Simulated scan of single mutants.
Amino acid sequence: MVPRLSLVVVFSLLVCGCHGGCAEVESLTEAELGRGFLLGCISCKSREEVSARSTVDWHFRAPGQDRFVHIFHYDHPTADVLHPDFGGRLEWRGTPGRDVQVGAVFLHNVTKDDSGTYRCTFQRTLLLPQGHQHVRVEKEVELSVVAVANRELTAVVSEIMMYVLIVFLQLWLVGVLVYCYRKTWDEHEAREARKALRAQAALMEVKDSCDGVQLEEQQ
């Protein structure tokens, strides 16, 4: 879970400004028995400058079942757990406001019965000058509960990317510091050289003046 969150941070640094730093990263799908798990759900707005109001709902369907059951509802500032099987175990980890783009929830103390399909639904109202526009977005997470979680390939790659980026930024910072030091030193040397030339010119003027006075005295 931590590597995937690290990848979200990296993407947030690299994604173009038109999306305001929002990147739609898929949730992990393998939870470890008895531990906590982050059910990820991100829906970025196509136009970041447009204000919006959003609510988020989570539904769950157990293996072999046909229907989803409503387990969670978020409408800022209220977060409600709606099913007794998840009572006290679901916690809002999404955007803390009305303009929600991250609709993640954290599931505490994962059990075998938590395996199944989770559906995240955004109900977003875009507050446009010409009128409000309603948008509905649905995402699903197929969750498997295992005794010991395996690290997914994407998680490993994301962690490697994170460390490569950190090393690259450190090297870039060192290069900038060296460049700034050399530039400052060169400017210092140039100032000292100009001072030396001015001092030499002043000495030459004094010498010429003294020579002129001596010639006049001799005459």
Rank of each mutant, 00 (worst) to 15 (best):
A190N: 09
H83R: 03
E32Q: 11
A196R: 10
S51G: 14
P96H: 15
R53Q: 12
I42Q: 14
V148D: 00
N109L: 09
T117S: 11
R93K: 14
K112W: 14
V176C: 01
G116V: 13
A193E: 09
A23C: 15
S115A: 15
Q65C: 15
A149Q: 00
A149H: 01
R98G: 06
E91C: 08
D99R: 02
L5A: 12
W185T: 05
R35N: 02
A155N: 05
G36K: 04
V167Q: 07
R4Q: 09
T95I: 03
C41I: 08
S144P: 08
L39E: 01
R136A: 06
S46K: 11
L203C: 10
A147L: 14
Q130H: 13
L127Y: 02
F72S: 05
S115K: 06
F72T: 00
E91L: 11
R4D: 05
A31H: 04
H188W: 07
K45H: 10
V25E: 05
W58E: 00
T55N: 14
D66W: 05
L177G: 11
V213M: 10
C41M: 05
M161W: 10
D66A: 14
R119I: 07
T111A: 12
A202D: 11
K207W: 09
L215Y: 02
V141S: 00
V81E: 02
E30C: 07
L143Q: 05
P96V: 03
G212D: 15
L215R: 00
G88V: 01
S209V: 00
Q65V: 12
R194G: 11
I166A: 12
V10E: 06
L153I: 12
Y118Q: 04
H188D: 09
S115W: 08
V146G: 02
E32K: 04
P84Y: 03
S27F: 13
T184H: 04
Q218D: 03
S12E: 09
E91M: 09
D99V: 00
R53F: 11
P63F: 05
D66Y: 04
C22S: 12
S54H: 07
Q130C: 00
H76A: 00
Q130I: 02
R182G: 01
K183R: 08
M162H: 02
Y181C: 04
V56L: 07
E216L: 15
I160N: 01
C180V: 11
L197D: 12
R35Y: 04
S6Y: 03
W58V: 02
L177T: 12
G17L: 13
H134A: 03
H76P: 03
V137I: 13
L215I: 01
H76K: 00
P96R: 14
E91A: 12
L173C: 10
E205K: 04
V56S: 08
V69I: 09
L5P: 01
L197W: 10
V141R: 02
G88M: 01
E140I: 15
L143C: 04
V2I: 15
I166S: 06
I71V: 13
D211L: 08
V102D: 15
E217G: 08
L203G: 12
R4P: 00
F68Q: 05
H73N: 09
D186V: 04
E140D: 13
D113P: 03
R151E: 09
N109T: 03
C22Y: 05
H134T: 13
L107G: 04
C41H: 10
S115D: 02
E159G: 03
Q214E: 08
L171R: 14
L177Q: 14
D75G: 07
Y163S: 02
L143A: 01
G131H: 09
Q214G: 05
L39R: 02
S27Y: 07
